[in-house]
Design a protein around this nucleic acid. Structure first.
Lengths: 212, 212
DNA sequence: CAATGTGAACTTCTTCACAGCG
DNA sequence: CGCTGTGAAGAAGTTCACATTG
């Protein structure tokens, strides 16, 4: 039961998230169990990898049986920090922002968008599902009114660093960055980049190999 | 000059894409050079890593000087398969699809959206920048009319696998998948997943560590 | 002298294989 | 007997350090 002391790698954390997705999808009855092999298939990895990943946080499987679905699911939620609600500021209410806002599992998983900011005056004042879009010039005031731990940064590349600086100064501790720019942030602030060009270009590379 | 025979890792390819982005941003004059150290800073890695990555494809730097920007940029484009145009089918004209469609560097980098499909009859017949949205039921006919090497799959999870199967049967060789589902595809088809839940949950995990 | 290219060292991640347990 | 948990082995990726070259 003792959690191993090794810190999980970034990729291990991402796999944990995939395991959780798989468990939530099967939405199993209380008594059901799942084996590392099945979980591995859902997440696109190997059974040994699943067991290693889970063993970093203790041993909650049963030899001969597998893992009980509901306890494992709850434990993964807890490990991933999903037992609580995170307040999210959406910076940039363009298409990407809108897409994320509508992402179904968003609120369900504990991410609550409390603030929406945009630089376009035409958008300011509109409401998205009860949240009024405020001007990006008001960033500091908005985050002081309703603090947020996480920001989703969906603004053009050239202004991304400036907005990131303001967000960090306003207390944001994690940024999901869609701008194709390397953000410089102080220690203690987490950044995840989602870079469409990288995704497409790595496919392009793979195609070159596949098609010759 | 001889390209090393080692295949680059997936992460190396992704870094190459970042180097290219950096080079395109500085948009340097013909004579300028850049050192591995500077390139590393733009891409968030180390100078040694940059040199190793580039050396996989030959040695186009000059000792004491660095890398000439325009040739390096052209070589990276070539390596990444961006010297040619890839035809892209956008499956799912929702918010994510719209966001990608508007992504500025999309066409500029050689990705040309030739087909847009959606299941919603209200959207069918509309035109996005000259491309008429066709019904998802017509997928096979649409891809036969205008073949595509790449598909962007931005449909709900439950139908993603079915659409992926149809796309592969219709000749698509690479899929950028936004559905939170593990796609099963035959050998010779490349898949890249962009999974928002994973991105958010790994931030959540990091926050838990940062905030205690 | 500055900065590349690269073997070698090192570190991290993954897979293996099997003891242990229900 | 089935399947987990985990050291050990192996593979892969990254960093180091330095010879090399313009």
């Amino acid at each position: 039961l003792a959690p191993s002391s090794r810190r999980p790698s970034e990729s291990a954390v991402r796999r944990l998230s995939l395991y959780l997705q798989a468990l939530e999808e099967i939405g199993a009855a209380d008594g059901s169990t799942i084996s590392s092999r099945i979980l591995a298939e859902s997440a696109g990895t190997t059974a040994a990898q699943v067991r290693k990943d889970l063993s970093l946080f203790g041993s909650f499987g049963r030899r001969g049986l597998g893992y009980q679905v509901p306890p494992l699911r709850d434990r993964l939620r807890e490990i991933l920090g999903l037992s609580r609600t995170w307040r999210v500021a959406l910076v940039g209410a363009g298409r990407i922002g809108a897409a994320l806002f509508e992402y179904p599992n968003f609120r369900k998983r504990g991410f609550q968008i409390v603030t929406i900011l945009d630089a376009d005056p035409a958008k300011v004042g509109k409401r998205w599902d009860g949240v009024t879009i405020r001007s990006a010039t008001e960033l500091e005031r908005a985050l002081s009114d309703t603090p947020a731990e996480i920001a989703i940064l969906a603004v053009p590349g050239p202004v991304a660093q400036r907005e990131a600086d303001r967000l960090v100064a306003a207390g944001v501790r994690a940024i999901l960055n869609f701008a194709p720019v390397r953000l410089r942030v102080p220690e203690g602030v987490a950044v995840n980049d989602v870079n469409m060009a990288v995704e497409l270009e790595s496919l392009s590379f793979a195609l070159r190999e596949l098609l010759g």
